[in-house]
Structure formats: C-alpha cells, structure tokens
C-alpha cells in the first residue's frame, strides 16, 4: 500500500479546503481502502468525511421531497421502515447490494462514486486504457461482465445498485466545493470514459457530493428494482433494472427505466420511456421498449447473454409495475 497522510476534519469548510488542495475524499473506505491496498489508487492525502456534522442521515421536507446526506450509511436507508414506505425502490436496490458488513460502513456518496469492477482495472499490473494505457484489455479478453452498449474506449460497467434506482426517482445531487454549491441531475454524475476523459464521474477537482435529493413527484410513482446476480449472496449486478411509473386507470405515465450492469453509465434511453407512455405495460410494449433500450448493442466475445437477460428483466420489472 502506498503512503498517504490522513485527516478527519469536523467542519465541511475544512474538508473542502483540503479537497481543493488536491486531497482525496474518504467515506466508509469499503472501496477506496482496497484500491489503495492494491496500488490502483495512490492518494497522497486522504480527507475522512465521516466526522463532518450534517452530511449524515435523511429527512423529508413536506412538498420538497427527500434529502439524503451523502455520508449516510447504506444500512440506514435499507433498514428504515419509514423510508421503505416512501421510497420502496431504494430498499429493494440495497437489499442485495454488497453484504451487511459493507452496508454498515459504506455510504450513499461512496456507493455512487465507487470505481468500476473491471478485473483488468483492479489488477495493478495491467496498464489498461482507463489507467492511462493505450488499449482496453476487455475488448479481446475476458469480457463476461463488461458492457454491451454505450461504451467508447472503455467497456467497464457502472457497478452501483443505488444509482439506477435513484435515477429512476429523478434524483438530483448537491455538489459542494470551496467555491460554492451547485445542483445537478444524478444521471449527469456518470460519464462514459471517452477521449481525454479517462474517468467515470463528472465531479470537478475539489468537489464532493453533499446530498442526494428526490423530488416530491417521484414519491407518487410506483417503482421496482430487479437484479440478476451470479450467486445468491452478495455480488454485483450482471444486469439490473430500475423502473418507475405512475399508473392511472391501467395506463402508465412518467415512465422511467434505467439499466445497471450493461453500460459504463446507468443506461437510460428517452425514446424507450416515451414509447411506454400511455400503454398498459403489456408484454409487447415492454419488450418493444427493451429493444429500444438495447438498440445498437454490440456485445463483446463473452457477454452476449446480457442482452437477452436485460430484455427479459425489463419486461418483468415493467410488468410488475402494472400489476
């Protein structure tokens, strides 16, 4: 493990000052500690965010939706009966995410900003494109878990279970830096690595995610999260689907469908959602939308099965909203 200094400020302003100076944010450490141990991340300074007041916990403000502090442990969301009533999709997405031990420590912000799980990326000895090398080893290598759609130079998949679920709830994030605050759509936090941009997230130098906000309107929609895994206990999604919609007289409105595990970002296609507006979410409509979502998919050697799986999972998720 490389050497680094460690600080745990109490004040957000102090953390932001350190981040501005080039330090790396540490939340629960369940991803970062492993990356550092394996030499994939080499931070010189770590700023532990867990001591900062006010970034932990969630609340509901009437008419303003839900605000979730970025340092809230995943377990707090998963085990809250109150949140399960307001936003059941969040609990569904977390129930099979990681392990109880990791959910106790891992945070919302850390889950959204965790690095990808491509095995070439995680192997210190492989100088792949995302790490500054010249080529992606997955393209002609072991590609069982890689992307089937939306990839450019890098074929990793976005690993977070929480991200598709929250995006299906129209979530926004509050981003803070020593220069001020800004709001952005959660979906815009995720970027497919491409060209000069050899990274997965759109945060700028010195920024951190302070909170996630779910607007009131999303609480009125029905939502569901389905996840295909290789084993029953913890494992990352091979494919996952977050779907939500308002159902009026048997017809779907405001439909959202977001896929995990198939693309470098949580995968959403506006045309597929539009196509579902006003339908009864019958099999034909669901499968047609799935085809639109996966239109242009170009699987690698080992992962064509993901297209079939995603298609069926989309159908099931949308059908369950109707039922």
């Amino acid at each position: 493990m490389s050497l680094f200094s460690y600080t745990k400020p109490r004040a957000l302003s102090e953390a932001l000052r350190l981040l501005r100076g080039g330090a790396t944010a540490l939340a629960g450490g369940t991803d970062l500690v492993t990356l550092v141990r394996h030499g994939v991340a080499r931070p010189e300074r770590l700023v532990d965010l867990t001591g900062i007041e006010g970034l932990r916990g969630w609340s509901r403000e009437k008419g303003k939706g839900i605000r979730i502090g970025a340092l809230t442990p995943l377990a707090d969301l998963e085990t809250s009966a109150q949140l399960a009533k307001l936003l059941p999709i969040v609990r569904e997405s977390l129930r099979d995410a990681a392990t109880p031990q990791i959910r106790n420590v891992g945070t919302v912000g850390g889950n959204l900003l965790q690095r990808n799980r491509c095995w070439y990326f995680r192997d210190e000895g492989v100088p792949c494109w995302l790490k500054g090398g010249t080529r992606c080893f997955a393209v002609d290598g072991e590609s069982r878990y890689h992307a089937v759609v939306g990839a450019h130079e890098c074929w990793m998949v976005s690993p977070s279970d929480l991200a598709p679920a929250l995006i299906a709830c129209d979530a926004e994030i509050e981003v803070a830096s020593s220069l001020g605050r800004r709001r952005m759509k959660l979906a815009d936090l995720f970027v497919a690595p491409q060209g000069k941009r050899r990274r997965e997230h759109a945060l700028r130098e010195g920024e951190l995610v302070a909170a996630v906000r779910v607007p009131e309107g999303a609480l009125e929609r029905r939502g569901t999260y389905l996840k295909a895994m290789e084993r029953k206990a913890w494992s990352f999604a091979i494919v996952s689907v977050a779907a939500s919609a308002r159902i009026r007289e048997g017809r779907a409105r405001d439909v959202r469908v977001v896929l995990g595990g198939v693309a470098p970002v949580p995968w959403r296609v506006a045309a597929a959602e539009k196509q579902l507006e006003g339908t009864a979410l019958d099999d034909n409509a669901c499968l047609a939308a799935a085809d639109t979502l996966l239109d242009g998919a170009t699987p690698l050697r080992d992962n064509g099965y993901k297209v079939t799986l995603a298609r069926e999972l989309v159908r099931r998720a949308l059908r369950s909203l109707a039922g």
């Binding site: 460690y6 540490l26 450490g29 369940t30 500690v33 492993t34 031990q101």
Partner: peptide, 15 residues
C-alpha cells in the same frame, strides 16, 4: 456495536 469487515477499515479511522 456495528458489524464491519476490519480489513476495509483504515486503522486511523477507528481511532
């Protein structure tokens, strides 16, 4: 009081 994997907790963070 909370169950964690001690291999993922930075010693400094457990101070």
């Amino acid at each position: 009081g909370e169950l964690v994997c001690s291999c993922l907790v930075l010693a400094a963070a457990a101070d």
